[in-house]
Each structure stands twice: as structure tokens, then as C-alpha cells.
Amino acid sequence: MFDYDSELARYHERLLEALDIRPGDRVLDIGCGTGLTTRDAARAASPGSALGIDVSGPMLARARRQAETEGLRNVDFVQGDAQAHPFPAEYFSLGVSRFGTMFFSDPVVAFANIGRSLRPGARFVQLVWQAADQQEWHTAIRAALAGEHASSASATAADDPFTLADPDVVAEALTSADFAAVDVVDVREPVRYGPDADHARAAVLQLRMAREWLADLDAGSAERALDRLSATLDAHDTGDGVWFDSRAWLVSAHRR
């Protein structure tokens, strides 16, 4: 399983700062993955609580195990699609998502459903990726693995991480879903793919985009692509991890 928590550690810190969680908050974490944001929110919100939702059963299983290991009693996880899940109405005082909102089939419907679960005036804070050409992790790995086909290699609608890359699109979707005071801030942080090039290669090859790009190649082309990948990762090995540049939007809004 790819370690998104390690990859996004710098963004995680920025997100927690922006959330400003208060004791007694009830936090809803959208696309929680293995639950790091949810667990940190639960600690900060105590005696309040945090609920994480994600579509991935294996990730949620890890989230639950880790919460138990950490002795957290005010955190829970549910498997489901936040676009349609029947959350309790006006229950949560804060909504959050760390790169978990870009995959909704209808962002307006999803944001409206999330909004109904928030108390009037509650904040919804999310991180979303900026455009693909602003992501060195994407362009460098794509160039290595897709090679001469890199310009035509793209994600399908179901797994495209850049659907909310246009801040006007995000703001319009949130406004249409009955949110107000939308604020979009440019955030630039590096992402980490492993402690060294070998670990980074193993991590990259767990990613769906990498597997799909390699699947389009014949055996010889795939071998050359893997050699290019190793060279790319070696070039980004700082001695303190393999790092790539990236840019995101930190988006906040208030439920009307």
C-alpha cells in the first residue's frame, strides 16, 4: 500500500495549521485514507470527536488498527462515498479533506451533501492539487515511464487527481453547494517518495498511474522505462529522501 502519509507530510503540517481545531469540535474527514488526519483531528478536538470516511476498505482497516494502537476512543471510520453517504444533518463543526475531493463524479452534489452535515457557519477546509504541469512528481515520473507517449498519457475521469486544479471551478462548485466566503491559497511543498531511490521505486510502482503507463508498453520498452525511472529517482535522492516539487490549493469555505 502506497504511503501517502509520508509523501504528504509537509502538506499535512500546513493543513493542521489551517484547521485550527478546537477542543469540543466534531470533525469530518473526507477521503481519510489510512486516517492520519482523522486521528490528529481527534486528538486536537478532545473531548470532541472525528469521523473519517473513505471508499477503500484496506486503508480503513489500517486506520482502525492504528487508532486502536494509539488508544484513541473519540475517532471512528466509515466506508462509503462522501458524495452520497447519509451523514447526520448539521452535526459536524469542521470539515476537512487532504487531497480527497478531486475524484467526485459531481463535485457540486458531493459538496452539498457534505455541507448538509456541517453546522451553519462551519468551515470546510481542503487541499487539492494544482494543474498537472505544476507537479514535478507527475511530470517527471510520467516522462520516465510513458516515454515518447508521455504527452498522450492521462488519467481517466475516475482517477484524475487534477479535476479541481482550476480555483474558479472549485469556488463555483462550493458556491453552488451553498458555501460562502471561499478562499483559495497557493501552497507549495515538496513531496517525499521514500528514504532512498530503491524505496521510492517500489513506492512508485504501487501507484495506479505508474502501472497503467507501463501496461501500454511492450517488454523492451517497459524495461527501458524502468531504467529511466531509476535514473529519475536517483537524481531526486537528496540523501534525506527522494523529493519532488509540487503545488496545491488550500481551499476554505463556510457553510451558509
Rank of each mutant, 00 (worst) to 15 (best):
D3F: 09
F92A: 10
V75N: 08
R211F: 06
V78T: 07
L164P: 00
A157V: 12
E90W: 02
A235L: 02
D218R: 07
E172R: 13
Q79Y: 03
S152C: 11
L28T: 06
D159F: 05
G194E: 08
S230A: 15
L145V: 07
L28C: 02
V96A: 15
G48D: 04
A41I: 00
A132G: 05
A140F: 05
L207F: 08
F104C: 00
R247V: 09
E90Y: 01
L72I: 10
L217W: 01
Y193E: 09
A42I: 00
T69E: 13
D76C: 12
V204E: 13
D106F: 04
G48A: 09
A41K: 03
A173F: 02
L118M: 02
A203D: 11
D81A: 03
R255P: 02
V96D: 05
S56H: 02
H85D: 04
Y4A: 13
G52S: 01
T238S: 15
A143M: 02
V96W: 02
D40C: 10
N113P: 11
S246L: 10
D76T: 07
F99Y: 06
W129C: 08
S152H: 07
A110Y: 03
E136A: 15
V109Y: 01
A155K: 00
M1F: 09
A197G: 04
S117E: 07
L226E: 12
T139M: 12
L214R: 01
R10H: 15
S105P: 07
P58A: 12
L250Q: 08
R10E: 15
L16M: 15
P47R: 12
H149D: 14
Y11R: 08
D76Q: 14
W249S: 11
D106M: 04
T156C: 08
L250S: 09
E70I: 01
S252W: 10
R10D: 14
D106G: 05
S56V: 06
D25T: 04
F244C: 05
G239P: 10
L51D: 05
E68L: 14
L174A: 06
L217V: 02
E70D: 15
A110M: 02
Q66Y: 13
H85V: 09
L16G: 01
L16N: 08
G95Y: 03
V184T: 14
S151D: 14
A248G: 09
E212V: 14
D106W: 06
G95V: 01
G33Y: 03
T37D: 08
E68T: 13
A177R: 05
A197Q: 03
R255T: 00
G48I: 11
A215V: 05
P161G: 04
M209N: 10
D218S: 00
V242H: 06
I141Q: 07
P88V: 10
P107T: 00
T34D: 13
D160R: 00
P23G: 11
